[in-house]
Structures are given as C-alpha cells and as structure tokens.
C-alpha cells in the first residue's frame, strides 16, 4: 500500500491507516526516536504519541508525503520529550554525537542575541542545503535531521559506512566554509 492510499484512509477516518503506517514506517520511526531518546521505552511511547498526533492531524492536514510528515511528527514528539525531560538529559549516543559533530561547525555565543543567531543559522542552513548535492544532502539530513547513525544511513542509502562518514565529513567542512563566508562564524 502506498502513501497516497494510506493518507486516503486517514482522511476517511479508517483506522486501518494506523496499522498500515506502523507496517511501513515503524522501524524507521522507532530508530529515529530511539536514537534521539536513547531509551527503547521512551521510543515506544514516542512512536505511539506520534501515531496519535498523526491521527489527529490528518485531516485537516493532507500531506504530500506521509513518510516525511510522519518522521517530522516523530522528531517533534521526541524533541518535546527531550525538552520536557530537561536540557540535561540528552538522548542516546546518536543525538549526542550528532550535536557535537555539528557543534564543531557552528558555535553560538552565550549572549542575549543568541536567539537571533539561532534564527540566522537556521536560515543559513536552509540556504546551505540548496548548495550541496542531493546525495550529500540526504546523507547530511539523515544524520542531523533524523539522527540516524552512519551505519543506519549506509543501510538506508545502500552505500558503505565509510562513504557515509566521508560524505558527512566533507559536508560539514562545506558547511563551516559556507557559514564563514556568510560571516556567521
């Protein structure tokens, strides 16, 4: 069953849509949640929470890509949980590493304008992603948006772990250079 058919079921309030969603996306969503939260129980709850949000969101929402919509919901749900649990409690190894990896490229100073810096960096990120190749962008977003490990990305993209790591290294270098050019570093 493809995404469009599942979305149609959601729109028709057909509860089988949830089962189909689970079948199609559970492994990915669980991995994302697990990597962010670092705990299987939390990941389970997060995924259930995401399903609930999805059910409540469609309709009125009618996403073009169910997968993209769902992983966004899962990511947000996990993020909410992390926020709720407090800033100290970072998720599992993957999130921590992802943050630290990216932290090497961009550092935010501790001052009142921090929020503005953050917004500027977010906008810069948007522009930066348009400058990199599609394959590198996918690897980069898999790592830093979905918080997948290099091994998981390799499995998902069909290339080797080494190649994923190398792609990430290069994209981070490009990002740093991009941000320096934009005078954001």
């Amino acid at each position: 069953m493809n995404d469009a058919e599942i979305i149609r079921m959601y729109l028709q309030r057909d509860e089988r849509a949830l089962q189909e969603t689970k079948q199609q996306y559970e492994s990915l969503c669980m991995t994302i949640a697990y990597n962010m939260l670092g705990n299987r129980e939390d990941a389970e709850e997060c995924f259930n929470d995401a399903l609930m949000r999805l059910w409540n969101a469609i309709p009125p929402a009618e996403p073009e890509s169910l997968g993209a919509f769902l992983v966004t919901v899962v990511r947000n749900a996990a993020r909410d949980r992390l926020t709720y649990a407090g800033a100290k409690r970072r998720g599992g190894g993957q999130l921590t590493v992802a943050i630290d990896e990216l932290g090497d490229c961009m550092q935010l100073a501790e001052h009142p304008e921090r929020v503005l810096d953050r917004i500027a960096l977010r906008d810069a990120m948007q522009r930066f992603l348009m400058t990199v190749s599609p394959s590198a962008r996918r690897v980069f977003l898999s790592r830093y948006w979905l918080c997948l490990s290099a091994k998981e990305i390799a499995a998902g993209t069909g290339c080797s772990v080494g190649r994923v790591n190398m792609s990430l290294l290069r994209t981070r270098k490009k990002l740093k250079s991009f941000l320096e050019k934009e005078e954001l570093l």
């Binding site: 492994s27 990915l28 991995t31 073009e64 890509s65 997968g67 993209a68 992983v71 966004t72 990216l102 961009m106 953050r118 960096l121 977010r122 906008d123 810069a124 990120m125 948007q126 930066f128 992603l129 599609p134 962008r137 996918r138 977003l141 898999s142 830093y144 948006w145 979905l146 998981e152 499995a155 998902g156 993209t157 069909g158």
Partner: peptide, 19 residues
C-alpha cells in the same frame, strides 16, 4: 538550526531512504 531543512528536503530524503 536543523529546522532549516525544508519540507521539500525531507520529502526528497524520504523518497530515497530505504530502511
């Protein structure tokens, strides 16, 4: 900062990610 990724980016990612 990673929210800078657009919906289009994520849709494209999901179209190519086999998991």
């Amino acid at each position: 900062i990673m929210d800078g990724a657009s919906e289009q980016n994520i849709t494209d990612l999901m179209q190519h990610l086999r998991f």
